[in-house]
Simulated assay, not measured.
Amino acid sequence: MKRHLDAAPDPIAGAADPGWRPTPGTQVTDRIQLGDFLRRRREALRPEDLGLAPGPRRRTPGLRRDEVAAMANMSTAYYESLEQARGPQPSVAILASIATALRLTPDERHHLYLLAGHAPPTAAEPPDYLDPGLAYTLDAVAATTPALISDDLSNVLAQNPLNVALFGTFADRPGHERNLTWHWFTSAHWRSVLRSASPREEEATSLLYVADLRATVTQRGHDPAAATLVADLREASAEFAGMWDQHRVSTLRCSTKSVFSEQVGRLDLDCVILASPLSRQRLLLLQPVPDTKTVDRLSRLQLLIGGGR
């Protein structure tokens, strides 16, 4: 049986109300472009490709609105209101149904969510998948720059030899033991390795970890892996739990760190994070701070670990 969705009072007036203005910081439904996109994608579909009879009554190309609404499990009136730029902001669940009904490609689905004012969901990746572009860069900088690849939850997936020499092997550890956010909030030793300039800077780093994880959890649609990590962190760390409840959201950034190596001494490193446009993964590079002894010391460390092979 078809489930009918009644149009609720419109929380975002958008283009339908010329006097309306968005609240700063909110995501806005682009009603006119959303309606145009839905209409054009509907008209681009051929009924016979979906197992529907072309029928003599069709006077326009593509599917009828009632056919799309039926496949998306919603009322025709609701779907029509979206195409006509006068409906309420559609929910994530409704967008998923429409995307399936219209046979949208991944890029089109991403575009649909943005037009509707929602963060596009990120696709799941196989557990052993490693982004090829990031993996190439990881190897390319191996002689000069400690680096690692992590997923969007900060689980370490790969490290180059300089990174392993400084921090040990993470990628092969079980469970949360390969997660950088977990170590930050549960290991005093890990914080002592990544020395911050001041308690204020350490607190700022903690907030960035939490805000990044909050954004990631939403992008993943609160999937089991993300939910489990958050629940375990809340139980293990009162600091994390308090910051999580602040509901801050931010892209992960990291500042200059001082790392002490027993083999070559202090290393001053600028942290750079590169996110892949093709996966959930990111590359974390620790570049030598200019005008310090770090370049020479990393060169010595590279010789030491290279000579031990």
Results as ranks from 00 to 15, higher is better:
72 A>E: 09
72 A>Q: 10
72 A>L: 12
75 S>C: 09
76 T>C: 09
77 A>N: 14
77 A>D: 15
77 A>I: 12
79 Y>Q: 05
84 Q>I: 06
84 Q>S: 14
85 A>R: 07
87 G>L: 07
87 G>V: 07
90 P>C: 06
91 S>F: 08
92 V>N: 03
92 V>T: 14
92 V>K: 06
94 I>F: 13
96 A>G: 14
97 S>N: 14
97 S>E: 14
97 S>M: 10
97 S>G: 11
98 I>C: 06
99 A>E: 06
101 A>R: 00
101 A>F: 06
102 L>P: 04
102 L>W: 05
102 L>R: 04
102 L>H: 03
103 R>Q: 15
104 L>W: 11
106 P>C: 04
107 D>A: 15
108 E>K: 01
108 E>A: 08
108 E>C: 05
110 H>G: 00
111 H>F: 12
111 H>I: 01
112 L>T: 00
112 L>Q: 01
112 L>W: 07
112 L>K: 02
113 Y>Q: 02
114 L>Y: 00
115 L>S: 12
116 A>C: 06
116 A>V: 05
117 G>V: 06
118 H>P: 05
118 H>A: 07
119 A>M: 07
119 A>T: 13
122 T>M: 11
122 T>S: 13
122 T>Q: 14
124 A>V: 01
125 E>K: 00
125 E>F: 07
126 P>L: 12
127 P>W: 08
129 Y>H: 15
